[in-house]
Design a protein around this nucleic acid. Structure first.
Lengths: 160, 160
DNA sequence: CCGATCTGGACAACCAGGTTGACCAACACT
DNA sequence: AGTGTTGGTCAACCTGGTTGTCCAGATCGG
């Protein structure tokens, strides 16, 4: 008899715990694969950039954060060599973002690891069960104005 | 045909999104019930105190955070009137924490709201399905050294 | 009874990842 | 040209943590 939650507060902790578990593992593994300074937010940001966010304001909109926050993130990415910026020749206000090979490497590895961890979960739960779980979670998330493509609300995760 | 996740990264976002959804709603509702300044961490902290953490160091251990962080949290709780501290007569190093009526009110309301939200989810999913979901999440969390009673790792959630 | 060590607390500086607010320079529109 | 919009930046602040340092009070061994 598995002792599941029963209480709403526990449910919240289960959700957060699962998330952190997953993400911590990814970050840990990323570190061993040559990305010791990568943080979850970097992954999300680079993904958004790859998906077309080629300026700070753009990134801010995609991530649903302020442009200042986006600028800080970009600065961090530049510092770590995941990304470079250069002034747009056509519009000298803009600073175009370009992902470096190192940055590509990061999201490639990140995607792989995420999928590996998910695959492990799949083994434990069964493919159908995991798919159902995802569908259920999608329902909860779908309730809300939250945009899965805009994980700005995902702020605040630390790994220890 | 529900578009569920397929990718590990999306799964992470689903978990986090569900969590934030739940918690944001609780905080929002808490605000309308007379606890406008309550944050999730306050709830967790007061719960831990009620569960027996009667000093800062104690709370730190339970929450698996540093004692400095615990002290800051306690200061915030005192400031908001959820808790009071007084020097232990028997051990003048210690400062015993006592939960005020207002604090009791907070966790009472919090528990209620958490459960209400969970109940709504139960309606949508079915009781058996939600129970299964919780059991599955518990499995993921159970993998790890994380202690559900020690949500210190839960740090970083902002509501906007 | 006393010194060594452990424990509770506090101060200070820092960090990540956000937020507001003010501001300027460059572009676009009419 | 003049006005408004957009991209970027500076600065200050917030939350919830982190280290590191230090002291005072308690406890234990001799």
């Amino acid at each position: 008899m598995v002792m599941s939650s029963r209480s709403g507060a526990d449910l919240a902790l289960l959700l957060l715990g699962s998330y952190r578990n997953l993400v911590d593992e990814v970050v840990r593994e990323l570190a061993t694969r040559g990305y010791p300074d990568a943080r979850p937010s970097h992954e999300y940001a680079i993904r958004a950039i790859r998906a077309g966010a080629d300026s700070a304001s753009d990134l801010a909109r995609r991530l649903a954060i302020t442009k200042q926050a986006a600028a800080k993130t970009i600065a961090a990415l530049v510092e770590r060599g995941y990304v470079t910026t250069e002034t747009d020749p056509a519009d000298s206000r803009r600073k175009n973002i370009r992902i470096t090979d190192h940055g590509i490497g990061l999201i490639t590895a990140g995607t792989e690891i995420f999928d590996e961890v998910r695959a492990r979960w799949e083994v434990r739960l069964g493919a159908a069960e995991l798919a159902e779980l995802e569908a259920q979670l999608a329902q909860f998330v779908g309730d809300s104005p939250i945009n899965l493509d805009a994980p700005g609300w995902a702020a605040g995760q630390e790994l220890r």
